[in-house]
Design a protein around this nucleic acid. Structure first.
Ligand SMILES: [Zn+2]
Ligand SMILES: [Zn+2]
Ligand SMILES: [Zn+2]
Ligand SMILES: [Zn+2]
Lengths: 121, 121
DNA sequence: AGCACAAATGAGAATGATTATCAAAATCAA
DNA sequence: TTGATTTTGATAATCATTCTCATTTGTGCT
């Protein structure tokens, strides 16, 4: 694993949740690292392609990255305080596969994100 | 309904599926309309806020717009040819509600999009 | 019609995330 | 060490989207 990939990964660990590429970059800078922005993007791309990092989009289109925990999962996000909960969705997985099959699709992936207001908000 | 909103809506009708703001703009120009890009964006924003247009994001973050058909539904998109199929997902709706309730969330909405390769591709 | 005032519009500049370039630096193999 | 290969950081380029602002258009009133 390359040095920059390590740095990006551990920055995401420290962040604990979703972070944008720009945030990762500025966090690294605050820690005195000289890592360039392009390198951050390159590392994030690689991490996503290796499925060690999740990516989703804010409403304005900016990409947010988060360290994958174990296995495939989805998120329940509080749009007020930003709290995120990982959720298990075997029901959705089954449904997605069935729908894909019924329409003759192959290699189907899915985006499933829930968002609303948490109990506190 | 303002003039530009009308033009944008009927361009989306003609498109029949998802179209980006830039595509809507260039289609209008091809038809000899002098509508400005900013106006296209303004009209699309309004249409989305009025829930007469759906919006989703391509993988690169660009927004795609589509005239809402009747009722809530999801999409199965071919990433190669762009073909989109509307799908009914009562299973997902139930699951989303259950998950939300279990975690004490209110006012939960969801994003569910399937994508893969259609039979032809 | 003529006028005042508000809303809508279009052109172009500004913004901001992401990507492309490219030369310098680190890594590697022999 | 030497020469090839990969990685990196700075910077420029790209591109969708938003902002600004002067101009046009619409509306109500006389
Ligand atoms: Zn909350
Ligand atoms: Zn899933
Ligand atoms: Zn296809
Ligand atoms: Zn649904």
């Amino acid at each position: 694993m390359s040095k920059s990939l390590n740095q990006v990964i551990s920055t995401l660990e420290r962040a604990g949740g979703f972070a944008s590429a720009q945030e990762v970059y500025s966090n690294l800078r605050k820690q005195g690292k000289t890592t360039g922005l392009a390198t951050v993007y390159r590392a994030l791309q690689k991490a996503v392609s290796e499925k060690s990092v999740d990516v989703l989009r804010k409403e304005d289109g900016e990409a947010l990255y988060r360290l994958c925990t174990t296995g495939h999962h989805h998120h329940l996000l509080c749009i007020s305080c930003g709290k995120t909960i990982e959720i298990e969705g075997s029901a959705v997985e089954k449904w997605a596969n069935t729908v894909a099959k019924n329409h003759g699709f192959r290699a189907v992936t899915h985006v499933v994100e829930l968002s609303g207001l948490c109990a506190k908000c």
